[in-house]
Write a protein that binds this DNA or RNA. Sequence first.
DNA 1: CCTACCGATCGGTAGG
DNA 2: CCTACCGATCGGTAGG
Lengths: 193, 193
Amino acid sequence: MSKKQVASDQGTRSRRDEILTVAAQLFARKGYRGTSMRDIGEASGVLGGSLYHHIKSKDALFVELHNGALDAAEARIAAAVADVADPWDRLEAACVAMLEVQLAPDSLTMPMMNDFREVPDAVRVELVARRDRFEGLFRAIVADLPLPAGIDRSIYRNLLLSQLNAAADWFRPGRLTPREIAGQVARLFRHDG
Amino acid sequence: MSKKQVASDQGTRSRRDEILTVAAQLFARKGYRGTSMRDIGEASGVLGGSLYHHIKSKDALFVELHNGALDAAEARIAAAVADVADPWDRLEAACVAMLEVQLAPDSLTMPMMNDFREVPDAVRVELVARRDRFEGLFRAIVADLPLPAGIDRSIYRNLLLSQLNAAADWFRPGRLTPREIAGQVARLFRHDG
DNA sequence: CCTACCGATCGGTAGG
DNA sequence: CCTACCGATCGGTAGG
């Protein structure tokens, strides 16, 4: 493999990554339908049609971004929780990891997770399947909590997840940090009494 | 005014209401961009172009639905809270009213409140302004709560509202009722200790 | 990666 | 409320 070949490989590899990053930001800001391939091209410095050298379709691009974001989040949360024994501390560690991923200023990552409404049916099926697997992580954490009787664990988990997901909608940098917000969330959900 | 005239007025009035109802359901299910005027026409039994006899534009239709939904929700919550003195009971009454509106099976009402991403800028400005006014209702309720020190009321309010808004995404009829879910929410947010 | 284009669909309008 | 259409934009492709 020649030097030129290697350089070219690196070039196209980072080119694709750059397109993915740009696309993720646009999707997060304007939604699936609100972002055209031409928008993504423009933000990447190419024409819309040229993107198809790097990706197969808009649908496939969106699914790849969504699932990649959940892969990354899942790994970070699992790592953050790994060494923590106390159930409530595990919950808080998971909230911190989730919000640090979700609220990172740049980040290939999510907040598109709520876009399910505007996406084609075939895409939605894939997104929901991946998301359900992700939510299993929280199911396990919630299952270990010594919650008082009368609290429905299913509702509890849904409420927790919807808060973590929605945080990106109202978060403004410069006030509380993601970690501090996670502390507030964990405190709300800590119900020993 | 002749009998025929009256009947005709009632006809166009209820026709318009029917279109609004149908449009609200489609917007809620498929989002602003995912719902075309032709979709709304088809569900109303007319061609897309014919809708413009009843409405000015897609944007105006969406804003009217959104603001009307918030008007209705605001009125119901204000009424539910009016006779309640204890701050925590007021919070719970507001949650019940909000979720009963939000989770009503048919209902002209919301869950489109999160679609802000995909909407034209000019529309978003109007939606945000109306929503901010709506949130003032909860700001007042939260302000009266005897929350322990260390809980940030701004975060607390945002967390509460994002849960109430997101409930429609995971709610499934036949399990817990909206009222019971509101009870779970209120219990989570009741932090006297 | 561009030029040049495809068929489909969009919001909206004129004219009846 | 329909017919018939407008210009714009969409995702995507061929061919270089």
